[in-house]
């Protein structure tokens, strides 16, 4: 808890980056699987839809966010344990 200013700065920065990376990760999968787009551009090719692929609308809704965060937590815990 007793960090001098520079280390506290690094701590704050790293916390912010960790938060941001989770935010971007969750948003990436929610947008990709939920509406087939990235940053608003459609990325899932048309023949996928013609072959019967359907966007998972649940991910765009609120429950999708909770479940996605849970899966990210699972991934992170599993990766940390292996080290």
């Amino acid at each position: 808890m007793n960090n001098p200013p520079f280390r506290a700065f690094i701590d704050g920065l790293a916390n912010g980056l960790g938060y941001a990376s989770l935010l971007v990760g969750v948003a990436f999968f929610r947008e990709l699987l939920g509406s087939g787009k990235l940053l608003g551009y459609p990325v899932v090719p048309d023949f996928f839809y013609q072959a019967g692929y359907v966007n998972n609308g649940l991910l765009v809704l609120a429950p999708g966010a909770f479940i996605m965060i849970g899966l990210f937590v699972w991934l992170e815990h599993t990766l940390l344990e292996k080290k």
Partner: peptide, 10 residues
């Protein structure tokens, strides 16, 4: 890996 926070979120 899912125990605790992870399963709470799901």
């Amino acid at each position: 890996g899912l125990q605790g926070f992870g399963i709470s979120m799901i």
